[in-house]
Design a protein around this nucleic acid. Sequence first.
DNA 1: TTGACAATAGAACGGTCGTTCTATATAGTA
DNA 2: TACTATATAGAACGACCGTTCTATTGTCAA
Lengths: 208, 208
Amino acid sequence: MAEKGTVLYRAARAARTRQEILGLAADLASAEGLEGLTIGRLAAELGMSKTGIFAHFGSKEELQLATVNRAKEVFLEQVVKPALTEPRGLKRLQAMLTSWLDYVERSVFRGGCFFAAASLEFDSRPGRVRDHVAALTKAWMDALRNEIAHAKAQKEIAPGTIPAQLAFELHAYVQEGNWAYKLYGDRSAFSRARRAITDRLRSASREQ
Amino acid sequence: MAEKGTVLYRAARAARTRQEILGLAADLASAEGLEGLTIGRLAAELGMSKTGIFAHFGSKEELQLATVNRAKEVFLEQVVKPALTEPRGLKRLQAMLTSWLDYVERSVFRGGCFFAAASLEFDSRPGRVRDHVAALTKAWMDALRNEIAHAKAQKEIAPGTIPAQLAFELHAYVQEGNWAYKLYGDRSAFSRARRAITDRLRSASREQ
DNA sequence: TTGACAATAGAACGGTCGTTCTATATAGTA
DNA sequence: TACTATATAGAACGACCGTTCTATTGTCAA
């Protein structure tokens, strides 16, 4: 820990301000979009000047990229990390889906799943932000598929299972749950998603 | 048909201009969002003045609502209408899902499924646009559920099927297909979605 | 031909955007 | 105490936003 009144202390202070900015930025962006996120709005809500915000990033695009990274860290902490306590294979796959749905239902971000919002917003906007968001969501999709492959290798699910296909379907249920809840405000979307996951995993275990 | 040089003719001319505006507006909004849609941009792309566009709607919100309605008409024409030729029940349900996926794959709108983009963009923005989009997507969801109920009544699918649950899952596959295609540009997303639908309907027929 | 009206254009407004330039307050080093 | 560096503020810029006001154009009815 840096002591008060040193260069390191000041740098730590700046880093803390930066974290404070990004915490709000990720929350706002999940609800109003990464493009709808404005420096003036951030400044007003934080009681700072626009310049005070801007100086930490240097451009709007860098702010957006930093915001995406912040959301990534939250996702790792809230969704990925808890699932890592489970043994690899079916158990961990179930834990990944459970903690993911919990994180959406808990409204960790104001606008639901940050990456659902960001990926759909940027899917038609070429640039670094889009590439970064696409790479991160792909990494998560790959993690699901990889875990399915493990479960298959451990014979926890049927040998005929195609990991990418099953990952597609499971991913779809969670995204649909997030979508339906945000649009209709109906929490039963989560039980539908959970039931779809349970049923699908059961059929993947049974099918010859 | 109104004759040239009459009041009706002029009204028809204005209506045609309006349709031209909305055609572009729906296309742009599907890719860049209903909020990202700007009057200046429309004017530039159509070679008109901002006022010339604006006068047709009176406010940005009315333009957005009219754009949503335009997208609704396209959806009715391209997705709903073709499916109505099939007999009610399982056949029609399959036709609805097929024509829906085809419409996404055909890129009828630049940004993929208009309502997928619009509903996710507005899910956290209260107002008339959000309400309208939510009502329209709900109507489509209800139509799917209703068709499933018909299929169940006709004993085409298992009596234990819960229509709302099955509708949730089928809807999820198409949305996921749209999402994966737009984000990764990978057409295999559509075959995954088709396969998921086929398998799910088969299991709904089989299950005791 | 004249006067009314509908469709569109042009110029301008206040507001906000991202961004830049120039302070200033604070706390370091010398 | 003087000088330096950092974090933040304030004012301003040009661009674009939605919107309004005031023409202009073309076609109608009289």
